[in-house]
Structure formats: structure tokens, C-alpha cells
């Protein structure tokens, strides 16, 4: 157990706690915006608080996801090289998804 593992373990819990209220907000929002048109979704997410909450949700989920999937890979991929490559692939995918989501939210927020 190295320092980085302790760091990951703690951050996994911190992101979990932050995600409790964000997940509840997300579920309620999905009901409120069920069947919305693109214009209605854009109007919703271009409001500053809602846009920031969605950005926070996506970033926390992706961070929590990369840490969680990493543990699963560490447990089930026996080969050292394959394990390292799979973890890298998941981490890169997490960053790529974060960039796409933030770019989308910025485009909605500033594009009108």
C-alpha cells in the first residue's frame, strides 16, 4: 500500500460524499426536464447555477469513475503490462469525456 493508493482511497470517498447531493439533484432534474426540447435543455443548462452543477456532477462522476474502475482493473487484470495499459486507457477516456462535457456546457452557456 503506497502513498498514492491511500490518496486514491481517500479521494474516492471524498468524491462519493460530494456525489450524494449532486446525484439527488440530477435525478430530480431528469424528472423536471423529461421530454424537453433542445432549446429548453439549452435554456436550463445556460443558467449559471444549473450549468455549474452539471459541470460539477460530470467532473465528480468521471473522477470517481476513473478511481473505481482502476480498482476493478487492479483486481482482475493479472498481467502487469496489460493492467497498466488498461488503467491508462480508462484515465485518458475520463479526461477526454471531461473535455467534451465542459466544451459542450461552455458552448451552451456562451452560445445562447
Amino acid at each position: 500500500m503506497s502513498a498514492i493508493n491511500v490518496h486514491h482511497w481517500r479521494n474516492q470517498r471524498i468524491s462519493a460524499v460530494v456525489l450524494i447531493p449532486l446525484a439527488l439533484w440530477f435525478v430530480i432534474s431528469m424528472f423536471v426536464h423529461l421530454g424537453d426540447s433542445r432549446a429548453q435543455i439549452a435554456a436550463w443548462l445556460s443558467r449559471p447555477v444549473e450549468g455549474l452543477l452539471m459541470a460539477a456532477l460530470v467532473l465528480c462522476v468521471l473522477y470517481h469513475m476513473v478511481l473505481g474502475v482502476r480498482v476493478v482493473i487492479e483486481d482482475y487484470v493479472a498481467d502487469d503490462g496489460r493492467r497498466a495499459r488498461t488503467i491508462t486507457a480508462v484515465t485518458v477516456a475520463g479526461f477526454a469525456l471531461a473535455i467534451v462535457a465542459l466544451a459542450a456546457l461552455a458552448a451552451i452557456g456562451f452560445g445562447g
Binding site: M54, V58, V61, M65, V100, A101, A104
Partner: peptide
């Protein structure tokens, strides 16, 4: 369920990108 939600996150990002696009 964590892995299923990871897969779902890809679709959430797709939804946001589609709304912006």
C-alpha cells in the same frame, strides 16, 4: 452497478454534446 454507471456516463456526455451541437 459502478461499471454500468460508468457506461451511462458516456451517454450523459453524449447527451450534453448533442444538446450543444
Amino acid at each position: 452497478t459502478g461499471l454500468a454507471l460508468s457506461f451511462g456516463t458516456v451517454f450523459l456526455v453524449w447527451f450534453l454534446a448533442a444538446a450543444a451541437w
